[in-house]
């Protein structure tokens, strides 16, 4: 008899689990206006610019303040952290007022076409010089336009950032 009880309980629990799944999709179907998560991109472009989720990652940028100064010391931690060689830092030596040589960045080269937005470089940066922007419209006509220099021309490292 236990075999028949086992068989019947198998059938009943199977049907019950199927009904649970159907209830969920049925709910989605009926309330499709609220549950639908599709973004109708070109139509709601302005809305998307206004309110993307905080954790959305678009591209790596370097923040500059009003004096055209950034916080990048050229330590290359981000370059080492990058899994697919997206970042290439070209360093130069500045002369400090005391006459000492000081290492600084010449060019922070960022290959957007290689970037997977994994965020490892941001986490590696000791001075929080780079961050993720939420810009997502990256289409260009020439592939070369995707290779960017992140530090603005004439910018220099902020005082006190080591």
């Amino acid at each position: 008899m236990s075999f028949i009880r086992q068989y019947l309980s198998d059938v009943i629990s199977g049907v019950k689990s199927l009904l649970t799944g159907m209830r969920l999709t049925g709910k989605y179907f009926i309330k499709h206006k609220e549950t639908n998560i599709t973004q109708q991109y070109p139509d709601n472009r302005q809305e998307l610019f206004a309110g993307l989720p905080d954790r959305f990652r678009g591209e790596v940028v370097m923040s500059h303040d009003d004096n055209n100064e950034h916080a990048c010391t050229g330590c290359t931690a981000c370059e080492l952290a990058c899994p697919n060689g997206t970042i290439k830092i070209v360093t130069k030596f500045d002369m400090t007022p005391e006459g000492k040589k000081k290492k600084a960045i010449d060019k922070f080269v960022y290959h957007l076409e290689l970037c997977t937005m994994c965020n490892l470089c941001i986490e590696a940066c000791p001075t929080s010089a780079i961050k993720m922007a939420q810009n997502f419209e990256h289409s260009v006509f020439d592939r070369r336009d995707l290779t960017k220099v992140l530090n603005k021309p004439g910018s220099k490292v902020r005082e006190g950032v080591e």
Binding site: T25, Y28, F29, H32, T35, N36, I37, T38, Q40
Partner: peptide
């Protein structure tokens, strides 16, 4: 349409 609504999508529009 049914597929889209059950998968939280809009479907052809």
């Amino acid at each position: 349409r049914v597929a889209a609504w059950m998968q939280l999508r809009l479907g052809p529009n």
